[in-house]
Measured scan of single mutants.
Amino acid sequence: KKKYVIKVYFEDTGKEVEIEAESKEEALEAAKRLAEELGLKIKKVEIYP
């Protein structure tokens, strides 16, 4: 089964997080949740198959 690796870059902090997920949708949801939890804004998202 294919996994996606999503790199999320946050504004202000210069922080980046990698998330593995089964689908792009799932990964983007996780990225949004994470940003909310951390109180950060997402600057850029890169998706690698």
Rank of each mutant, 00 (worst) to 15 (best):
K1F: 02
K1V: 12
K1T: 11
K1R: 12
K1S: 04
K2M: 10
K2L: 15
K2H: 14
K2F: 03
K2V: 12
K2Q: 09
K2D: 07
K2E: 15
K3T: 07
K3N: 08
K3W: 10
Y4L: 10
Y4M: 11
Y4W: 08
Y4D: 01
Y4Q: 11
V5E: 04
V5M: 06
V5F: 09
V5C: 02
I6A: 08
I6K: 00
I6N: 00
I6F: 05
I6Q: 00
I6L: 06
K7Q: 03
K7I: 11
K7A: 06
K7L: 10
K7R: 09
V8R: 00
V8Y: 03
V8W: 02
V8C: 03
V8T: 01
V8E: 00
Y9F: 09
Y9P: 00
Y9V: 10
F10A: 01
F10I: 01
F10N: 00
F10L: 05
F10Y: 04
E11I: 10
E11K: 06
E11F: 08
E11G: 07
E11D: 14
D12H: 11
D12W: 11
D12F: 11
D12G: 13
D12S: 08
D12R: 11
D12C: 07
D12V: 09
T13A: 13
T13S: 13
T13P: 11
T13N: 14
T13D: 04
T13L: 09
G14F: 15
G14A: 10
G14V: 15
K15F: 13
K15T: 12
K15I: 05
K15N: 15
K15G: 07
K15M: 05
K15V: 05
K15R: 06
E16D: 15
E16C: 03
E16A: 12
E16P: 07
E16G: 13
E16R: 05
V17F: 11
V17M: 09
V17G: 04
V17S: 08
E18V: 10
E18Y: 04
E18S: 07
E18M: 10
E18A: 05
I19E: 01
I19Q: 01
I19C: 05
I19V: 07
I19Y: 14
I19R: 01
I19K: 01
E20G: 10
E20N: 05
E20P: 08
E20Y: 12
A21D: 02
A21C: 03
A21G: 08
A21W: 02
A21Q: 02
E22F: 08
E22R: 04
E22W: 06
E22V: 08
S23G: 03
K24N: 15
K24L: 14
K24P: 05
K24S: 07
E25I: 07
E25K: 06
E25V: 10
E25T: 06
E26R: 06
E26H: 12
E26S: 07
E26W: 07
E26V: 05
E26C: 03
A27M: 02
A27E: 00
A27I: 06
A27P: 00
A27H: 01
L28C: 07
L28R: 06
L28V: 14
L28E: 11
L28M: 12
E29F: 12
A30L: 15
A30T: 10
A30H: 15
A31K: 00
A31Q: 01
A31F: 03
K32W: 03
K32C: 09
K32L: 13
K32T: 14
K32Y: 08
R33F: 05
R33E: 04
R33G: 06
R33S: 07
R33V: 08
R33C: 04
R33N: 09
L34F: 15
L34E: 02
L34C: 02
L34V: 15
A35W: 08
A35D: 00
A35N: 01
A35R: 01
A35Q: 03
E36C: 08
E36V: 13
E36F: 08
E36Q: 13
E36R: 11
E36T: 12
E36L: 12
E37R: 04
E37H: 09
E37D: 12
E37I: 06
L38S: 08
L38E: 04
L38A: 14
G39W: 01
G39C: 02
G39F: 03
G39L: 02
L40Y: 11
L40E: 09
L40G: 02
K41G: 08
K41M: 12
K41Q: 07
K41S: 14
K41N: 14
K41E: 11
K41W: 01
I42V: 09
I42R: 00
I42T: 01
I42C: 02
I42S: 01
I42A: 01
I42E: 01
I42P: 01
K43G: 13
K44M: 12
K44I: 10
K44F: 14
V45K: 01
V45S: 03
V45N: 01
V45C: 03
V45D: 00
V45T: 06
V45P: 00
E46F: 04
E46A: 09
E46W: 02
I47C: 03
I47G: 05
I47F: 10
I47Y: 15
I47A: 05
I47N: 03
Y48L: 14
Y48M: 09
Y48T: 15
Y48I: 14
P49F: 06
P49Q: 12
P49C: 04
P49S: 04
